[in-house]
């Protein structure tokens, strides 16, 4: 099962109604407001118009996309991310403090298989920069340039492993990515 979040369906023949998107985003933003104000009931005088304005802004800025988030994918991704972000930081910190500066930087190229322009790609390209030894340095179409701090084939392997995890969050099929 997956929660249907309103966004994109690039090849959808019919225009997608913005109303469900608006409702879902307003709900998400309302919970953010709740967090900000610590659940102050009186704050909704400003909160309700602010949430509405934010939701309308969000819908107006996005393309009429539709995407799904798989809770199971998220549940598997979070510990993966936490662990690798921790390892990644310790690794860089170690290399920065090491007297001989053990780094061998190089640029590597990677063909992204995640669907075009969707939120999964944005998440992917951003998270690459937080994982051990990899940093997304450029993006042209499907071609991602990764800066590896240690070089070698490990860089691409880690990026590929991450892409699979991201695909699981958004229920994407990576095999049809080479369209």
């Amino acid at each position: 099962m997956g929660v249907v979040l309103p966004l994109d369906e690039p090849r959808s023949p019919r225009p997608v109604s913005p109303v469900p998107r608006l409702v879902v985003r307003a709900a998400v933003l309302a919970s953010v407001w709740w967090i900000l104000t610590g659940g102050d009931a009186g704050s909704w005088v400003i909160g309700a118009p602010a949430v509405l304005a934010a939701a309308v802004t969000s819908v107006a800025l996005g393309r009429p996309e539709r995407w799904r988030v798989s809770p199971a994918g998220v549940a598997r991704f979070l510990p993966f991310f936490a662990w690798h972000a921790l390892i990644g930081s310790i690794d860089v910190a170690y290399r920065a403090l090491h007297p001989r500066l053990p780094i061998a930087p190089s640029f590597e190229h990677y063909e992204i298989r995640l669907p075009d322009e969707g939120p999964s790609r944005v998440l992917f390209v951003n998270v690459v920069s937080l994982l051990p030894g990899t940093l997304s340095a450029d993006l042209e179409g499907d071609a991602l340039t990764v800066h590896g701090l240690i070089g070698g084939t490990g860089t691409i392997d880690r990026v590929k492993a991450l892409e699979v995890r991201i695909a699981a969050i958004f229920d994407c099929d990576l095999s049809e990515g080479d369209r």
Partner: peptide, 17 residues
């Protein structure tokens, strides 16, 4: 921008409140 701007609108409302 797509993610941040709506949150900024909300934060502006929060600061106002």
């Amino acid at each position: 921008v797509h993610l941040l701007v709506p949150v900024v609108v909300l934060v502006a409302g929060y600061l106002l409140w």
